[in-house]
Amino acid sequence: MKKLLYLSLISIALFSACSQSPTKEDLQQLKGYWEIKTVESQSGKKKTFSFNESVDYIFINEDLNGFRTKVKPDLEGKYTKTGTRENLKIDLQNDSIFIHYNTPQATWKESLLKLDKNSFTVKNKRGLTYTYQRFNGYLSHE
């Protein structure tokens, strides 16, 4: 009985640690190259991407302002800009983190649900949930 209680407490602690929301201190982990791995709708319909011809480059400064742009990687590890630069600002509201984007054509926001050094997940107002993984190049062994 004592072992079962101990195992239950460890399980709860691990689950809580894994499900914590991102913090302000985590946000610098967004810097870098990212590729979309999955997109899931509110109804649970899910699309998985096994290869991305273009990836997102995200830059964030200390004031939590920055930009996101699409780039096309090559096999040598170089990148060519392919998309519009989207200015971004990260907004911390209570226990939530929002990424506000703007271009000359539109403005929108996403809620940051999860973040670690290798992946992050955001949700937009249409209920689409995007999961990204860090892009390390096409020839990476990671």
Rank of each mutant, 00 (worst) to 15 (best):
Q93E: 11
G32I: 03
T69Q: 14
Y132A: 00
P73M: 03
F135W: 10
L64E: 05
L139W: 11
G77T: 02
S119H: 08
G77D: 02
G83A: 04
E62R: 03
L92T: 07
E76Y: 12
Q93S: 12
H100T: 05
G127H: 07
L115N: 08
L75D: 06
K46F: 10
F51T: 12
S140E: 08
D91Q: 10
E110I: 03
I90M: 02
H100Y: 08
T107K: 14
K78V: 02
Q93R: 15
L139T: 04
T107W: 04
L112C: 00
K109I: 10
S119L: 00
K37F: 11
L88H: 03
N94A: 04
N136D: 07
S50C: 08
E76P: 08
Y132E: 00
D116M: 02
K81D: 08
D95Q: 00
S96F: 07
Q93P: 09
Y101L: 07
K117F: 03
K46G: 13
D74N: 02
T80S: 01
F51P: 08
G77K: 03
N87T: 03
N118R: 07
Y130H: 12
K47G: 09
R134G: 01
K109F: 14
D91C: 07
N124L: 09
H100W: 06
K70Y: 13
E40P: 13
E40F: 02
L30R: 10
N124F: 10
E53P: 12
D56Y: 14
N61A: 02
F120M: 06
K123P: 10
I99S: 00
A106Y: 09
K123L: 11
Q29E: 11
F120Y: 15
F120D: 00
E76K: 12
G32S: 04
N136Q: 14
K46W: 10
L92E: 06
F59M: 06
I97H: 05
I60A: 00
N124K: 05
G44F: 07
E53Y: 08
V39C: 08
T103M: 05
D74F: 02
Y138C: 01
L112P: 09
K45P: 08
V55M: 04
R126T: 14
K31I: 09
N136M: 14
S43G: 10
F51M: 11
R85H: 12
S43C: 03
G83Q: 05
K46T: 15
K37V: 15
V55I: 15
K125H: 14
N136I: 12
N52Q: 14
L113D: 09
H141M: 13
Y57W: 13
Q29F: 14
Y57D: 01
E35F: 07
L112K: 03
K70P: 10
K109S: 15
I97A: 00
S43L: 10
S50Q: 11
G32R: 06
E40W: 09
K81E: 14
D74A: 00
R68G: 09
D95H: 06
R85L: 13
D63R: 07
I90Y: 00
